[in-house]
Computed example of a mutant assay.
Amino acid sequence: MSAELVAAARAGLAELADAEKAPQMQRYMKSAMPYRGVATPARRKLANRLFRAHPLADVAEFTAVALQLWREATYREERYLAIDLTGHSAYRSWQSPGLLDLYEEMIVTGAWWDYVDEVAIRRVGPLLRAEPGVLEPILRRWAVDEDHWRRRTSIICQIGAKSATDTALLTTAIEASIDEPDFFLRKAIGWALRELAKTDPEWVLAFAGNHGGLSPLSRREALKHLKN
């Protein structure tokens, strides 16, 4: 069934291709890999249809298909479909720390925000909340990793966690990158703090007050909706 799903995915994207939109999308994302020109709503409809029509037998086949779509992609939307597959509701029960190697590959080899943010927030984050004893030590290592996309993941993976946010882990992740000039790390810090401020504004204000080294970008984003 896996080969049929991969073939159907490629054929489905080809049918939806828009030659006019494709180069525009590629320029916007600054992507070396070309696009088919398939808009997100259309791709998601295709994904739902494909995943219903081609059910996968077990987590091994699920992982193999995701990796094949990812590694053999010639158009960026094929990688988007790989990420869509990993989040499909039919396979929610298969989510476990055993998939972290898959997600780490997507983060490191994807190395751009459109891939990384989805995987970090919607795949790694839920795993952290479900299995904190397993994920927390890994994310603490990622927080100081040479790879900035692992670092970004450690910072933003708790977006949406609200009161379940592990603020000690978030503090570690932010402090590890607070002096980094990288735009995507500075933006990640501000974004993570801004989202947490929706449910714990006092903590965010105290954090900002105690961390004078926050970049102007991070601070502005963090306090965007707060009076300080």
Results as ranks from 00 to 15, higher is better:
Glu4Pro: 01
Ala7Ser: 07
Ala14His: 06
Ala17Asp: 01
Ala17Pro: 06
Asp18Gln: 04
Ala19Asp: 06
Glu20Met: 00
Glu20Cys: 00
Lys21Ser: 00
Gln24Cys: 05
Met25His: 09
Ser31Thr: 00
Tyr35Asn: 02
Pro41Glu: 07
Leu50Asp: 07
Ala53Gly: 15
His54Arg: 10
Asp58Thr: 07
Val59Gln: 15
Ala66Tyr: 08
Leu69Cys: 11
Arg71Lys: 14
Thr74Asp: 13
Arg79Thr: 14
Ile83Cys: 15
Ile83Gln: 15
Asp84Trp: 01
Leu85Ser: 06
Gly87Cys: 05
Ser89His: 14
Tyr91Cys: 03
Arg92Asn: 12
Gln95Gly: 10
Gly98Ser: 13
Leu100Trp: 12
Asp101Met: 05
Glu105Thr: 12
Gly110Met: 09
Gly110Gln: 11
Gly110Asp: 06
Gly110Trp: 13
Tyr115Met: 09
Glu118Ala: 12
Arg122Asp: 05
Arg123Phe: 04
Gly125Gln: 08
Gly125Asn: 02
Leu128Tyr: 15
Leu128Asp: 13
Arg129Asn: 02
Ala130Lys: 08
Ala130Arg: 12
Val134Leu: 08
Val134Ile: 05
Ile138Pro: 04
Arg141Gly: 11
Asp145Thr: 01
Trp149Pro: 03
Thr153Cys: 15
Ile155Met: 03
Cys157Lys: 09
Thr167Arg: 15
Thr172Trp: 03
Ala176Tyr: 10
Glu180Ser: 09
Glu180Gln: 11
Pro181Glu: 05
Pro181Met: 12
Asp182Thr: 09
Phe183Tyr: 13
Phe183Gln: 03
Arg186Glu: 12
Trp191Gln: 05
Leu193Tyr: 06
Arg194Glu: 01
Lys198Tyr: 10
Lys198Asn: 08
Asp200Leu: 11
Pro201Asn: 11
Pro201Val: 03
Glu202Leu: 14
Leu205Phe: 10
Ala206Ser: 14
Ala208Thr: 09
Gly209Ala: 13
Leu214Ser: 13
Ser215Asp: 05
Pro216Gly: 02
Ser218Cys: 07
Arg219Met: 05
Ala222Trp: 11
Leu223Met: 14
His225Ala: 13
